[in-house]
Nucleic acid binder design. Sequence first.
RNA 1: CGGAAUAUAGCUCAGCUUGGUAGAGCGCUGCCUUCGGGAGGCAGAGGUCGCAGGUUCGAAUCCUGCUAUUCCGACCA
Length: 569
Amino acid sequence: MRASQLLISTLKETPADAEIISHQLMLRAGMIRRLASGLYTWLPFGLRTLRKVERIVREEMDRAGAQEVLMPAVQPGELWQESGRWEQYGPELLRVHDRHNREFCIGPTHEEVITDLIRKEINSYKQLPSNFYQIQTKFRDEIRPRFGVMRSREFIMKDAYSFHVDQTSLAETYQAMYDAYSRIFTRLGLDFRAVMADNGSIGGEGSHEFHVLAASGEDAIVFSTGSDYAANIEKAEAVPHGMDRAAPQEAMHLVDTPDAKTIAALVDQHGLAIEKTIKTLIVEGAEGGLVALLVRGDHELNEIKAENLPEVKAPLTMASDEDVRQAVGAGFGSLGPVGLDMPIIADRSVLLMSDFGAGANIDGKHYFGINWERDLPLAKEADLRNVIEGDPSPDGLGTLSIARGIEVGHIFQLGTKYSNAMNATVLDENGKAVPLMMGCYGIGVTRVVAAAIEQNHDERGIIWPEALAPYSVALVPMNAHKSELVRETAEHLYSQLQAAGIDVLLDDRDIRPGVKFADLELMGIPHRIVIGERGLNNGELEYKGRKDDEATLVPQATIIDFLAERMGR
RNA sequence: CGGAAUAUAGCUCAGCUUGGUAGAGCGCUGCCUUCGGGAGGCAGAGGUCGCAGGUUCGAAUCCUGCUAUUCCGACCA
């Protein structure tokens, strides 16, 4: 490509509405432009990277035995009625009517469509297992689109759905997809981790997320220092440090705490160690009524874990001030488990506490010196909290540390959730109709591009990994208008590189070199060759990698080999 | 949807407190000069100051309502 023929829309200044670096650089490098909230146009330059991601994803999916299909973005509402998600999905599902006033939605995902297809097309266990994927536009009417294409409403996803007669077969394909995803993110040159995840609203059993590690990531992911245990913090099991509860030392006593409405205030004003306090959180119960959840003062409630408890209403809903006051007779700052008349569920570490402090269920008063079994019956035990740095690893090997990640892929074992709801069966070896087992596997293709930039940039701009670079090599002729030699050499090299199958950008723009250098660095082109009369007189070209501090002089005759080596080809 | 902020040229912003009819830098067009790291000069184009009302002789500026965008929370690839 000749730069003079390419829409290069670089910006010197950072647009004011871009918060994170990838969003800023995608705008500045002229990859995307915003149309409306959460809706972006991909400009020619940005689209090239998007296509490179798609190509790698496609190659690896094909290699893993999946078949590509393409399903419509618009889906009939009746399929969603059938699966039950028309009601469940909520306002994130964009619903539309056609001219006959029939209901449709713009697909946020395609379980319904693929299940409908497969129940019609596949009738026998002999046709299984099979796995279908597409790379297609999704729409989710996010409450808060943000960070450019990182969380947009319209985005491109690779989604795959596998079908099986039994769990064993599902587990095999799941593993194959796990491996394919690992290859994909490795080929993309990303620093990523696969972590155990909660299944969320999609339901089913096993699930892993693939995260690109980045400080701006929206998820907290947890690793063991002593094993390969890794999980989303939503899922990571919190294991108490010890097994035994210390014997009571103090008598329980009532303390006036008129100004201590928070744990921090209680600790400050009354000299209680934060590990000796508990938070009492009142939430709505599954069967109506209220449920109390206890975590240690220095721990955080894990809402996913709480919501998965049978006693607790999903989605997790904190009780209102009025409801609490009516049920307990005290307000939020003074709640505690002693004498509390509702189901009480305590985090494991809470049950190991002794001589602790908690609200007395009387406004402005706390009990100190509380002890289980002596002052109140032992509460029901559950894992309720987020793990923290230094907790023991659940597999018993090492301790946990926490990092930030951007979720770029997610694989699920769905089981028979959709096939049951939509009556998708096949005949097994005994001629008996059995519901199809399903797995589903997603990659946020547009998000991968943003995540790659989060991980690969410097103060000058993007630094594309080789596999994602829109162009691998940029040629910059110096003073081309003055030098026939420079022009000819540049043209010749341009043809040579094209013939070698290298994506090359010839910067033939009629602008000053400094502007070209700045643009090419902003745009992240990995390899740059400057063609100047000075060097040519010595038979040399000047090479500079995007990450290099200094340029290298390379004999003209060896430039193709030199580049090939630098590109790792 | 709850909380906060912002809205003036393609981009980044000033002007608003104290009302008098539109500004800068970058970008864009033409010409000249320059040409190894976002050059310089000259001449230009470009804005019903987010929208709708109100106050006033007069509103970008004051008031009211709306809309959009961004940030913080809950959802997700």
